[in-house]
Design a protein around this nucleic acid. Structure first.
Lengths: 227, 227, 227, 227
DNA sequence: GATGAATGAGATTTCATTCAT
DNA sequence: CATGAATGAAATCTCATTCAT
């Protein structure tokens, strides 16, 4: 006589998916518990039963989002033998992960808007970050040992650099498009930007900068590609 | 008597200032018209008298914020004779402007969350952008003519690069601090980051990269400086 | 416990009853959702829970009023064998229905003020009208076949005539009383007016007008009767 | 240095005109002082200066409307020698006056909604009614003396009859159109209805009803004329 | 686990009216 | 006469949350 077979785990997952969508689209304050419930075809009480409160649901959605992003990066064979290739792959994966999870960016912005209030409560999220930095450290060390990367590179600085370049382009797309009067959403624009980011980061990392500069043709003009 | 103290223009300005603060702090949806009114010592309906609606107030606050940022950059003598110096100043001004206007970042994020919905309506805002790109083009051209910068640099790409690096560090401070387990708010961290950004951008622009690489000691470790 | 006393259907009905009263008394614009809620001993948001909006409540109240009026006319055995009697009964029922449902008149005026905006949306209301015209057609046809009524009578014209005479007396009571310096609310005035309406309509319908004219003594003077 | 030549009387008149329009269109409660002021290109304070309050403005608009209607009926040569003709003209003028002043009907309904609250305060309005009844009495008396009308006719009853038939058709146009599934706004429908009203009233008044019945062809079908 | 009904606090917005000049 | 600015009360509507079953 159960409403449907719907096992709890599946329901939880569906709720989280739509909560991510809602919180990402319109932020914590703008999100409506009713709307999430309605879209899940679940009664509002269920949300409260599973997640205690709107805040609880938000934190759960945040965690779920992090897990998704990390899962996407985990099966990344960045520990490949070639540090240059590994770095290229790391950058590409970062860009693609953000690009394909638009809610992630909004949720992260939301968290920063709240000055990290929720993220700080969740050990789970903190734990999800460490493998990322570890991976980057590993790559840098190996690259250094191989004489390809400079010595003394700070993984934090490298991560900040690549992360800024990947994230900002996507997160501030709309205001940037107006500022630069260009289209940042086209496939070719994004491809060129990713190439540019890769060049910039590798140029920064390599011992002898001139080595990478010519590896690939540089992204000269986004505008040109858009036409 | 008594009531008379304040002229309308001043009241308008006070409302805008606090609206920027409120919208920036908690977003459009989270912002409360009541709160803004109360903090201005103005009755709620005055906000509606001046700005028609919450949305109208938001757009006005956005415009005001842009004006503020641009005003800060306008009295910037970037058209100095030395392109390298001009570029350094442009980067520094961008970073400092964002750093000293924390509402600006949140308002811009807010706009991007709404997919540029409001900004697109305001010709005023669009107009405020153009001088920025013009200035950058001017610097790049002069640098190219002087043989210091590469030829063929796209101002859009250069702007995207420096903007990403300045903005993201500040906008995502809280999640980055947790990811990297470091403090990004200290004066020295920020100084080092600004130096790093400058290096990265100049390295990208100069004809012969090796020229700039040694200009100043590189930011080796944020963590180290924080300790 | 305690709270539990009332089932939803009963609450809905109570709200509708008081909404009819409020909308009828003071019109759509003048009606206050708060007042309706308060009189129902129901919290304001329940009205929105049940009826979505003030407009939704208005339409529901309109429908409820129509149902009431029609229900009152349905158990009317106007299909009696005698067309004259049937017509008299129809007129009397129309007058009495309007007289005993003062909200009905105001609600109908309200609808006409809004140029039929709401009524047009409600199929339910449209459907409630047809039996009325059908009944009238039936009476006229039978009367015609019996040689009592003229042939070629348009039910619409007959309905318009009797409806005007019944409705206007009640709907414009206050301005008419001042115009004519008389009292239209007394039982005897109303009785005489109903008699007058009956005479007028039957006189119009019968084949040979002289037949009805003497059936009952005519209403000579409202003023006289009021004294 | 005066804003414009605009003499006070003209301004007052303009305000009243638009106030009638607004109060008529949407009722006392729905009318907005701001809207009236705006449409007059007059500051709100002027309304208060001239009319003291919204209520004062409403009463003034009512009075103005009555004056307009009466003015239209005054230059009516109903005192013509032929009572039948006079009565026909009176009916026609009543119908046309209501038809060409749609605000009048709504304002009258508004007054009745308020149970004559405002009208009772205005001696001016009361005075405007008497000539109408006097005129009707005069016509009836002369018609009686001439042997054309019955004796003992109560002017109040006759007025109620013709007024109901003229007013209701116009005032309840929208609900009637839906009830009867017909169009009451066409010129031909209205012409036929006026003819019908005239027939009904004259038939009621004449000593020997058969005398009028054949005067003019009767309105058989509104629907037929609409097609 | 699950639901429809209910709630209380509060959000945005409106409006007649008045004040100071 | 005339105005822009201001006000306070109140109107419609929303929302996170809980209760009773």
């Amino acid at each position: 006589m159960a409403r449907r077979s719907s096992d709890p785990a599946r329901v939880r997952e569906k709720i989280l998916k739509l909560a991510m969508e809602e919180f990402g689209r319109i932020g914590f304050e703008g999100a409506r518990v009713d709307r999430i419930a309605e879209r899940c075809n679940v009664s509002k009480n269920m949300l409260y039963y599973y997640f205690k409160s709107k805040e609880g649901l938000f934190v759960a959605a945040l965690e779920r989002m992090y897990e998704g992003i990390r899962a996407q990066q985990r099966d990344l064979s960045v520990r490949a033998s070639d540090p240059l290739l590994a770095m290229e792959q790391l950058i590409e994966h970062t860009f693609v992960a953000l690009e394909s999870n638009p809610h992630a960016i909004r949720l992260l912005n939301e968290e920063n808007k709240h000055r990290g209030k929720y993220i700080r409560k969740s050990k789970r999220i903190r734990d999800l970050y460490s493998p990322l930095v570890e991976t980057l450290s590993f790559i840098l060390e190996r690259g250094c040992r191989d004489g390809i990367f400079r010595s003394g590179l700070d993984p934090a600085v490298v991560y900040l650099t690549l992360s800024s370049l990947c994230y900002h382009y996507l997160s501030n797309q709309y205001t940037l498009e107006i500022a630069l009067n260009t289209d940042l959403s086209s496939v070719s624009s994004r491809k060129q930007w990713l190439q540019h980011v890769t060049n910039i980061v590798l140029q920064y990392c390599v011992a002898d900068p001139s080595a990478t500069l010519d590896r690939k043709p540089n992204a000269r003009s986004l505008a040109a590609s858009a036409s």
